[in-house]
C-alpha cells in the first residue's frame, strides 16, 4: 500500500479545496470499503485521500412530498435502520440488510456503492426501480441532476468529472398500493456479492398490473432496467404463464458473462426464476 496523505474536511468547500490542491492523483473516500481494498492490492496509488466522512451536507434521509432524499454519505447501516426506507422503499431495505456484514455496513455508504459502479452493486437495482436521480455538485457549487440509468457509463465507471462529487439521491415513492422487493441470489447465505440481483416494483389493480418496474444486477455491464419485460407485463395479470413468458423476455435483455461467481447460462436461469419470485413477493407486499 502506498503512503497517501489523508485529509478530513468538515465541509464541501474544504473538500473541493483539498481536491484542487492535488487534482491529478487525489481521490474522495467515503466508507473506504472499496477503496482500501484497491489500495492494499496496489491497484490504485493515490497521493491524497479526501475523506467525506465528516461532511454534514452529505448525510441523512429525508422525505419531502412523494420523494425520499438520501445523502451520499449515509451509511448502508443507517439506511437499513431507517423507518422511512423500511416503509417506503422496501426493495432498498431488502438490499441493504443483506449486504456484506454489519462491520462493513457500519462504514460503507450509498454514494460509494453507486460511484464504485460494480455491475453487482446491491443498491443499484433497487434505486433504479424507485426512479432514482443522482444529485451531482461541482466545485463551483453548481448542481446537476442525472437519472441513475444515465449516470452509469460501464463496469466501474460513472459520468462524473474530476471537480464533481455526488451529493445525494432522489427516490420517487411508489404510488399508494404498490409493492416492491429485491432478491439477491448468492452462493453463501451471508457475506457474499450477488450472483444475480432482481428488483421489482409494481402496482396491481383488479388483478391487473397497472405499473411495473424491473431492474437487474450482475447480468449486464451495469445494473439495468428490463424495459421490454416491463412492457410485456404492464396491463396483464401475474399468471404463471405470463411470469414464465416475462422471464424468457428478460433473458433477451441481458448479457451475463462467465465469472468465478457463476456461469452465464446459470445466471440466465436464475434471472428467469427470480423475476417470478420477486414479482410475487412485490405483489404480496402491495396493499391491494
Amino acid at each position: 500500500m502506498n503512503h497517501f496523505n489523508y485529509q478530513r474536511p468538515s465541509s464541501l468547500k474544504e473538500a473541493f479545496n483539498a481536491k484542487s490542491n492535488f487534482p491529478e492523483n487525489s481521490l474522495f473516500v467515503a466508507g473506504g470499503s472499496d477503496i482500501f481494498l484497491l489500495l492494499k492490492k496496489n491497484i490504485i496509488a493515490p497521493d491524497q485521500l479526501i475523506s467525506l466522512r465528516s461532511i454534514p451536507e452529505l448525510k441523512g434521509i429525508d422525505k419531502t412530498g412523494s420523494r425520499i432524499i438520501i445523502g451520499s454519505g449515509t451509511t448502508i447501516r443507517e439506511i437499513e435502520k431507517s423507518e422511512l426506507i423500511q416503509k417506503y422503499c422496501p426493495a432498498l431495505y431488502d438490499a441493504v440488510s443483506n449486504m456484506a456484514s454489519v462491520q462493513i455496513r457500519n462504514v460503507a455508504t450509498l454514494g460509494g456503492n453507486i460511484v464504485n459502479a460494480s455491475p453487482g452493486a446491491d443498491t443499484a437495482a433497487p434505486l433504479l426501480i424507485y426512479d432514482a436521480k443522482v444529485i451531482v455538485i461541482n466545485s463551483q457549487f453548481e448542481e446537476r441532476i442525472v437519472p441513475l440509468s444515465n449516470f452509469f457509463k460501464g463496469p466501474k465507471r460513472v459520468h462524473l468529472n474530476k471537480n464533481e462529487l455526488v451529493k445525494g439521491f432522489i427516490l420517487e415513492i411508489p404510488a399508494i398500493g404498490s409493492g416492491s422487493a429485491y432478491l439477491k441470489f448468492m452462493k453463501r447465505k451471508a457475506m457474499d456479492l450477488a450472483n444475480v440481483g432482481v428488483a421489482v416494483q409494481l402496482l396491481i389493480e383488479k388483478d391487473i398490473c397497472q405499473d411495473i418496474k424491473i431492474a437487474l444486477a450482475t447480468v449486464a455491464p451495469t445494473s439495468i432496467r428490463a424495459v421490454k419485460t416491463e412492457a410485456f407485463l404492464r396491463g396483464k395479470s401475474l399468471t404463471e404463464a405470463n411470469l414464465i413468458q416475462a422471464g424468457e423476455i428478460a433473458a433477451t435483455e441481458i448479457s451475463p458473462i462467465d465469472d468465478f461467481r457463476g456461469k452465464a447460462w446459470h445466471k440466465i436461469e436464475v434471472v428467469k426464476a427470480y423475476i417470478k419470485r420477486a414479482s410475487i413477493l412485490a405483489k404480496e407486499r402491495s396493499n391491494l
Binding site: 473506504g32 470499503s33 482500501f36 481494498l37 492494499k40 447501516r77 456484514s101 454489519v102 462491520q103 462504514v107
Partner: peptide, 22 residues
C-alpha cells in the same frame, strides 16, 4: 480485507473492521 472480522473493534459503539479503518 474486511472478510474475516478478526480485527473487529467498536468506534462510538459500532463494530467496524479496523483493518480497513483509517
Amino acid at each position: 480485507m474486511g472478510e474475516c472480522g478478526a480485527c473487529t473493534v467498536l468506534v462510538n459503539g459500532l463494530n467496524i473492521n479496523s483493518c480497513l479503518f483509517p
